[in-house]
Amino acid sequence: MSDHQVFTAEQLATMDTIIARYPKSRSAIMPLLHFVQSIDGYVTPRGIESIALKLDLATAEVTAVSTFYTQYKSEPVGEYHVGVCINTLCAVMGGDAIFEAACDQLGIKNHETTKNGKVSLERIECNAACDFAPVVMVNWEFFDNQTPQSVKEMVDDLQNGKPPVPTRGPNTLRTWKENSAVLAGLSDGLANEGVQAGPATLRGLNIAQGQDKK
């Protein structure tokens, strides 16, 4: 790796703090890959080489890990990465139609990014929000109870620099890189923002409280 490709001293120091969380350094490979994505947007060669160097691994070993997990991208994705759940329940309840609508509106297909680099699209598997189906994730923030129309508007807003607010998430939608840093374990101080729970989450509790009143 030639010198000009290396991360900044500050970034390298952050890598060391991530490594220090674990009894064995190799465990840090996943947060380090998230961290590389927070800087470069995807898993770059310099990211792989730096991690290999930091963890005393062969570059092939880092590649083996990065290509196993779908959240690590080998190509750049958009500033806003839109994931439409197409697992059975969401698909049946509208996910398929939503995905088609998003493709049409953006003029791109699965795993593609708009030319301006703003929005990319991915068919995603179940994201643990089935009681809010159909579900769309943007930069891995929840957008619950979507329709084709709502998603068309959403991707327009993303293209136009007016990112919509997640249903259960912070008050402003953060970029792909910013959220990758959170996944690397670097706090952005936004934990207190947003609702504590969506309506479906509270359904049973509210019924129970009604039962108690009876």
């Binding site: 062969a58 570059t59 092939a60 590649t63 083996a64 290509t67």
Partner: peptide, 22 residues
């Protein structure tokens, strides 16, 4: 002790491979 070839990707796309520069 030379892990220069690894299993990459996942599932039906899993494949043996190297890191391109090594």
């Amino acid at each position: 002790g030379d892990p220069f070839i690894t299993l990459n990707e996942r599932g039906a796309l899993q494949q043996v491979g190297i890191y391109e520069d090594q």
